[in-house]
């Protein structure tokens, strides 16, 4: 009787319970709370103070959707994704393929590629700030070709530079994912292709690329998650989404609106919109990449 209600090993419930409780407290409840806040006139109060927070329907959403700064932030993420996603997929697949075939130095290269991924964003942002500053190393290297105004204060270059930074920082992780996927591509496919006279490029395009397609879906989705999460880079690298909002991200706006300016309701509305946009893109991407 008890077995049918609780399952064969009810102790599993006890083992999983602390995890499940945290899952509810830290994920499920906050998601609900975010949606609730976004439909109410919400403001911060001291702990324990009860105040009236009237239901305002879609007011917060209309305010957010009519805000040019919000439009710009979402557009900035689009720019970020257009640069970051293809670059990430191509570079990580090419480097993973090269690494997979390498005879010597595999471990050395693996370590090199992974170091940016495991380093703190704040630390590597610091060195990029220095490298790409006005009189910095990169501009010195470029000499007369250096952009004016410089990278981080240039409206057209700030966001692409952030996209480049994130690509560089995350690439090692994606190389490792592709490296694992490449182990599942049959060696005999390459052998028969070589027998049929296919070149290296040919077998890369016709065997490797389709062979790792499931991994590509994952890489694309994880890159999009990174894009939706963008905060530290615009906050520190371009000094709060500058110049003039050219590199502001939705999460940065959520921080500025919600916490700096004390409007958690509009910030929550931005968060909900971002979540919806992300789910739509992830769904379309899954459909698009997984059809045969």
């Amino acid at each position: 009787m008890l077995t049918t209600v609780l399952g064969r090993q009810p102790l599993g419930l006890a083992f999983a319970a602390p995890y499940a409780v945290f899952l509810v407290l830290i994920f499920a409840y906050p998601v609900g709370l975010a949606v609730w806040i976004s439909f109410h006139d919400y403001f911060f109060t001291a702990p324990g103070v009860a105040v009236d927070r009237p239901f305002v329907g879609l007011d917060n959403y209309t305010a957010v959707l009519g805000d040019p700064e919000v439009h710009k932030a979402f557009l900035n993420v689009a720019v970020f994704l257009v640069i970051n996603v293809p670059l990430t997929v191509v570079l990580s697949l090419v480097l993973a393929t090269a690494l997979n075939g390498a005879v010597r130095g595999r471990i050395f290269f693996r370590v090199c590629y992974f170091v940016p991924y495991i380093s703190a964003s704040v630390a590597v942002v610091a060195v990029w700030l220095f490298l790409f500053s006005n009189g910095g190393f990169v501009n010195q290297l470029l000499g007369p070709l250096a952009p004016d105004p410089s990278w981080l204060i240039n409206k057209g270059l700030a966001m692409p530079l952030i996209a480049l930074f994130v690509t560089w920082k995350q690439l090692g992780f994606f190389i490792l994912l592709y490296l694992a996927a490449l182990q599942n591509v049959g060696k005999e496919l390459y052998e028969s292709a070589a027998m049929d006279g296919a070149g290296k490029l040919g077998s890369f395009m016709n065997i490797t690329v389709p062979g790792v397609r499931p991994a590509t879906t994952l890489v694309v989705i994880l890159s999009i998650i990174t894009g939706a999460n963008l905060f530290t880079e615009p906050y520190l690298l371009t000094n709060g989404g500058g110049p003039n909002g050219a590199s502001a991200s939705p999460v940065l706006l959520m921080y500025q609106r919600g916490i700096e300016q004390g409007n958690p309701d509009t910030a929550a509305a931005i968060g909900v919109l971002l979540m919806i946009a992300f789910l739509i893109i992830a769904f379309v991407n899954k459909r698009f990449l997984e059809r045969d």
Partner: peptide, 26 residues
């Protein structure tokens, strides 16, 4: 272990992975 709610818990974990933490900031 086989217990009631195992499938649900696993599905919930998968779902959580696609919710970016930053969105729960507020």
């Amino acid at each position: 272990l086989h217990f009631r709610g195992r499938g649900t818990l696993f599905a919930a974990m998968l779902l959580v992975q696609v919710i970016p933490f930053q969105l729960l900031m507020i």
